[in-house]
């Protein structure tokens, strides 16, 4: 995009591989969400926040 500070999060493995992470195949539910979804996002956002306030 020619713009700096753009980060990208792949979606393929955000919900793990066991197929149990959503209530309806799409919307996330708690347990897997905490460990996999937020865990993955957490590391990405921490990376972005390294040089901010």
């Amino acid at each position: 995009m020619g713009i700096n500070n753009i980060f990208y999060l792949n979606g393929d493995n955000l919900l793990g591989q066991d197929g149990e992470a959503a209530t309806d195949g799409s919307h996330l539910k708690d347990e897997d969400l905490c460990v996999k979804e937020s865990g993955h996002s957490l590391s990405s956002i921490k990376l972005m926040l390294q040089n901010i306030d």
């Binding site: 995009m1 500070n5 980060f7 979606g11 195949g25 799409s26 990405s44």
Partner: peptide, 26 residues
């Protein structure tokens, strides 16, 4: 959308997130 944000915020990180795979997509 990204450019609109960049007009006001030159360096604020922007995270583009893919959709999570439907758990039954296979």
């Amino acid at each position: 959308l990204v450019r609109k944000i960049r007009e006001a915020h030159k360096t604020t990180p922007i995270l583009l997130v893919e959709d999570r795979s439907y758990t039954n997509a296979r």
